[in-house]
């Protein structure tokens, strides 16, 4: 199989290039893209990418496979290869450090901007704060985010304004805390988001939903935040 891999090493390269590598695939086994990368790295140890859990929960190996963002470790080669060809690129829109490794600084800055932690200044009880199963169910589809960055780097609004638009991942986190019955800072959280950029640059094109490897729906969370902002404004 032909694999075309984005290569850039700032120590030696003036500019990035796509490099073709060929690899024999074992018969009767559908490898994950990460397995493919590991085999390519045995051929050429200088190939760099992030990876760790190899089961889709740590969020390290978000890359772009034949144009689609996803996690290399849970994407079968057969699902993304077209006519025996596969192009592997770093997540789009972020500065490239080396090969498939991007600088996620802007992504994490936006994450931190939404104050991604529970705020509740009332003294906690001796045991847990109570929460009904229904209240807890409000967090399903929100807390599972693994911060892989696939969504925000598939979002044109984030490409254009990575410093001002929070992006789908950060907004999913923002809503995760807005939706938590234990959080008491809802009003302040909304005030932080009411400028024209933080939330309202979302154009609802749903690239984030299409690429999320955990099947989450940031667009819906953004819609809920918009609803709360409108309600608060009236």
């Amino acid at each position: 199989m032909q694999v075309s891999v984005y290569r850039y090493n700032p120590d030696v390269d003036d500019k990035p290039r796509m490099r073709d590598m060929s690899i024999e695939l074992p018969e009767g086994q559908d490898l994950m893209v990460l397995d493919l990368l590991e085999r390519l790295k045995e051929q050429d140890p200088s190939l760099s990418y992030r990876r760790s859990c190899r089961e889709g929960v740590c969020g390290s190996d978000g890359i772009n496979m034949n144009g689609l963002n996803g996690l290399a470790c849970i994407t079968p080669v057969s699902q993304v290869a077209k006519r025996g060809k596969l192009a592997l690129r770093p997540l789009p829109g972020l500065p490239v450090i080396r090969d498939l490794v991007v600088d996620m600084g802007q992504f994490f800055d936006q994450f931190e901007k939404v104050r991604p932690y529970l705020i509740n200044e009332t003294p906690p009880p001796a045991q847990e704060r109570l929460q009904s199963p229904e209240q807890r169910a409000e967090l399903d589809g929100l807390y599972e985010c693994i911060l892989c960055g696939c969504c925000s780097t598939a979002c044109p609004s984030f490409w254009w304004n990575p410093d001002k638009f929070v992006g789908p991942a950060g907004l999913l986190q923002a809503y995760r805390f807005l939706a938590d019955s234990r959080d008491t800072a809802g009003d302040e959280r909304l005030r932080d988001l009411e400028d024209p950029f933080s939330v309202f640059r979302c154009r609802g094109i749903m690239n984030c939903v299409n690429v999320c490897p955990k099947g989450l729906n940031p667009t819906r969370a953004i819609g809920k935040i918009r609803g709360l902002l409108v309600k608060q404004g009236t």
């Binding site: 992030r50 859990c53 089961e55 929960v57 740590c58 969020g59 390290s60 996620m104 693994i146 911060l147």
Partner: peptide
């Protein structure tokens, strides 16, 4: 690794 990539996550 970025802390949330640590193996506790699994």
């Amino acid at each position: 690794v970025f802390p949330t990539r640590s193996h506790t996550v699994s």
